[in-house]
Design a protein around this nucleic acid. Structure first.
Length: 571
RNA sequence: GCCUCUGUAGCUCAGUGGAUAGAGCAGCGGUCUUCUAAACCGUUGGUCGGGAGUUCGAAUCUCUCCAGGGGCGCCA
């Protein structure tokens, strides 16, 4: 389905061309034609201010341009009329017959209603969550998880084939610490004399979850690991952590298609290939300090073993970056560049990274690296998630996974609901910082807009249930009997393709929850006025209204699924 | 200091260069013998952070100033 605004725009373009050929408009290059849903009933259903924009280039009054366009407008089944309104707006009104037809289209298409094909034949990848398996997902990760999955769903609706990927590192010092920590808990659980490190031991993961995992390990393997070092513990802990993480994500209906291990880039030498390629391009130098440092800095560091530097300043970076440390170990940046190279080579047309805002600089450097490799860095799109501050009792809750004082995503879901978490975190512009008030989320969960939207679905389901008990069918309904208000609601539903297009093109998933709220906001007042089984409602009209509400229910189900939320029949 | 994000109703936030800036919550006053009142109806509430500029037209684009968050590591 093509967005209605585009269909209107196509007509306007044809009209301008026809007017130019007829000599009613002078020759000029036709710009992109803006079409917006009208805000007021008297201004029709869709409106275009294109005549105002053309006034200068056509050297004519906007009103005259608008009239010329309308005069040459081709006929279309979805258009009832086009009128010109000062200072030069063109107001389109949708055909009632066509609109009525869309009710059946909505029922037939159901969960695919509003789908586009702008991504037709294209593959997109969304990389999100990507937390190392050192503990349960803490609440600070929630926003990125929800936003990432929301984007993936929108891209799917836009016609892309989407892969959800999770990037992780299981080889670092943090994973070793996790293994060591589990070992301590294991020995403790077996009653061995072992000292439990206190909070001052920064390497030790204090979280309760490691005690549970130690218990599991004993059930499975008894005391077989009494003399083992940290490594088998790390392997066991990692598997256990991933299981927990996946289960948590599944609660909010998030499922990754691929898990990419950073370590594989070491094992297949990908990172060293990248380093060689950068070197061949002249982007690498070895030195104890950055090029261009002052004499005293050079002097101070002259005994330091040389590190390997990336000349990212060639691409506008404020300073060069280290790729390989003095001790010969790569920094995080090198595998990250290799990872993105790998992604591009896998043939995706569109790459989306959902990252915390604190990764801004790191991501820039990766893009410079991709450029230096001669690859198309513009394929990489980044959604930077601004911080979520967890607030309780009006005070910020500090989160530290290692000390075990975290609030997990699981906690948040338990305290509210999966649907509330999805809606609340998806409804905000990722660029905006937000405070997540834990008290508010718990105490006032009934005030959440999520219930307002779901209740609309419930009410439709209620009507259909009532019809069933009464043995009342909408077979052969004459939809031309339908109320103006119902048709206005249908018109609003037809904005969905435009909404999906905008969200997909700008990677702005938060617009969909807002649209869903708008739809619900138009629904509830109508529900009170447009009754199916009300007193004095003609049976034929009731039949038409019943069919209409069948479509409305399909619409809400569609919206809720698009947001990864449940569509309850009862509340 | 440099980079970046944010500033819109009491609060939380939408808003794609277009017509009279919106929603939810909170507030105030009403409405259930009805397909679920988790709802509806009415109503209060705005120098779109300040200033200048571009434009036929600016919450939206540019500049500048103010305020707040984040980042500027041979950490990941």
């Amino acid at each position: 389905m093509k967005p209605l605004s585009e269909q209107h725009a196509d007509l306007v373009v044809s009209a301008i061309q026809a007017a130019q050929q007829a000599g009613d408009l002078p020759a000029f290059d036709i710009p992109e034609v803006p079409i917006n849903p009208s805000k007021r009933i008297e201004q029709g259903d869709f409106a275009s201010p294109v005549a105002m924009a053309l006034a200068r280039v056509a050297k004519m009054k906007p009103l005259d341009i608008a009239n010329a366009i309308v005069a040459h407008l081709p006929a279309a089944d979805f258009i009832e009329s086009a009128e010109v309104s000062p200072p030069g707006f063109i107001n389109f009104r949708l055909s009632k017959l066509w609109l009525i037809d869309q009710i059946n289209v909505l029922i037939e298409q159901g969960d695919t209603f509003g789908n586009l094909d702008i991504g037709h034949g294209k593959r997109a990848q969304v990389e999100f969550v990507s937390a190392n398996p050192t503990g349960p997902l803490h609440v600070g990760r929630s926003r990125g998880a929800i936003v990432g999955d929301a984007v993936a769903r929108i891209l799917e609706a836009a016609g892309f084939e989407v892969q959800r990927e999770y990037y992780f590192n299981n080889a670092g010092v943090q994973m070793k610490n996790l293994g060591e920590s589990l070992r301590v808990r294991y020995l403790e659980a077996l009653g061995q004399p072992v000292e439990i490190p206190d909070e001052s031991a920064s390497w030790f993961y204090q979280g309760e979850y490691l005690k549970d995992i130690a218990q599991q390990l004993i059930e499975e393997q008894g005391d077989a690991l009494l003399d083992a070092d940290w490594q088998p513990f790390k392997v066991y802990a990692e598997a256990a952590m991933f299981k927990v993480i996946k289960e948590t994500l599944a609660r909010v209906d998030i499922h990754h298609d691929a898990f990419f291990n950073e370590n594989s880039l070491f094992e297949n030498n990908a990172i060293w290939d990248v380093l060689d390629a950068l070197d061949k391009g002249g982007y690498i130098y070895k030195s104890p300090v950055r090029e261009g440092e002052s004499e005293d800095v050079i002097e101070k560091n002259k005994d330091l073993a040389p590190a390997t530097w990336f000349r990212s300043t060639r691409f506008g970076d404020s300073e060069d970056r280290v790729l390989v440390k003095s001790d010969g170990a790569p920094t995080y940046t090198l595998p990250d560049i290799a990872y993105h190279k790998n992604k591009i080579e896998r043939g995706f047309d569109l790459l989306v990274n959902v990252l915390g805002a604190d990764h801004y600089t790191q991501h820039q450097v990766v893009k410079y690296g991709i450029q230096a490799l001669g690859l198309d860095a513009s394929k990489i799109n980044v959604i930077l998630i601004q911080m979520v501050r967890m607030v309780r009792d009006g005070k910020e809750v500090k989160i530290s996974t290692r000390r075990g004082t975290y609030e997990t995503l699981d906690d948040l879901i338990d305290a509210t609901s999966a649907d509330a978490v999805r809606y609340t975190l998806a409804a905000r512009n990722p660029n905006s910082q937000m405070d997540f008030d834990m008290d508010l989320a718990i105490r006032r969960s009934n005030d959440n807009p999520v219930y307002y939207i779901q209740y609309a679905h419930v009410r439709c389901a209620g009507i259909l249930r009532e019809a069933q008990t009464r043995g009342f069918s909408d077979d052969g309904a004459d939809l031309s009997l339908l109320d103006e208000e119902a048709l206005r609601f249908m018109r609003k539903c037809l904005e969905l393709p435009d909404q999906i297009r905008f969200a997909a093109e700008t990677l702005s998933p938060h617009t969909i929850p807002h649209f869903a709220l708008e739809i619900a906001n138009q629904f509830h007042p109508m529900y009170d006025r447009v009754r199916v089984f009300g007193e004095g409602v003609d049976p034929e009209l009731a039949k038409a209204r019943l069919r209409f509400y069948r479509a409305v229910q399909a619409m809400f189900k569609r919206m809720l699924k698009l947001m990864g939320m449940s569509a309850p029949e009862f509340m």
